[in-house]
Computed example of a mutant assay.
Amino acid sequence: MAEHLYLQASSRTERYRELYPQLQGLLSRETNLIANLANTAAALRQVFGFFWVGFYLVEGDQLVLGPFQGEIACTRIARGRGVCGTSWHTGQTLVVPDVDAFPGHIACSSSSCSEIVVPLRNTEGEIVGVLDIDSDQLSDFTEEVDRPALEQIVELLAPLFSR
């Protein structure tokens, strides 16, 4: 069965509001972790046209590339390295307006200009991965709009890691 997203809003804030209940419904009908992560990445890329959307999952002391949409990416990232590894290490969402200004940024693609990384937690609160979104535009993500909306979206994924 094909899934469809129905969005009418033009502002980013409203698109997040319209997307959220549709993602809730989509994720509630499937129990497979990889399928749900893949559809979440695809939905975010489809709705917002971001350059790269994907997940890195904790494996030992590294983040390992999970489901994503976009160009080929870095496969493994050490804890505390780059934006993803730093977000994992600190447990905080990072909004990076200019990736070239981020100390230790890992350039998987020279087309990436700005980035947001949101820690992904299971229902026990343990960080099990990160949602990584890159844009080919500078300052494409904001603390006021993208951060809370994406943090709410990753909360939908927590039960998938506790099954």
Rank of each mutant, 00 (worst) to 15 (best):
F50T: 02
V95F: 03
V99C: 05
T142H: 12
G25F: 09
T93S: 09
T40S: 11
P103N: 11
V53W: 09
P97Q: 06
L120E: 06
T93A: 11
A38T: 10
G80D: 09
E30N: 13
Q22Y: 04
Q24H: 06
S11A: 04
L131N: 01
T40V: 07
D100C: 05
W88V: 01
G54R: 10
T40I: 05
E155K: 12
T40K: 14
I34S: 05
F55Y: 10
R81Y: 04
W52S: 03
Y56T: 00
T75F: 10
F68H: 10
L27G: 09
G85P: 07
L33N: 07
A38F: 10
L65A: 03
C108Y: 13
V128C: 14
I116W: 14
E71H: 03
R121M: 04
A43F: 15
V83S: 02
L23C: 08
G82D: 12
A101H: 15
P159F: 01
T93M: 05
I106L: 15
Q22K: 07
C84F: 12
C84I: 04
P21I: 02
S87K: 15
E59T: 03
G129F: 15
D61M: 06
A38Q: 15
L120K: 07
V95S: 04
N39W: 15
L5D: 02
D136I: 01
A9L: 08
L94W: 07
I127S: 14
L65N: 06
N36E: 11
Q24W: 05
V53D: 08
E124W: 06
S28F: 03
L131W: 06
E14F: 02
I153V: 11
Y56M: 03
R12I: 01
S10F: 07
P148A: 07
D98Q: 14
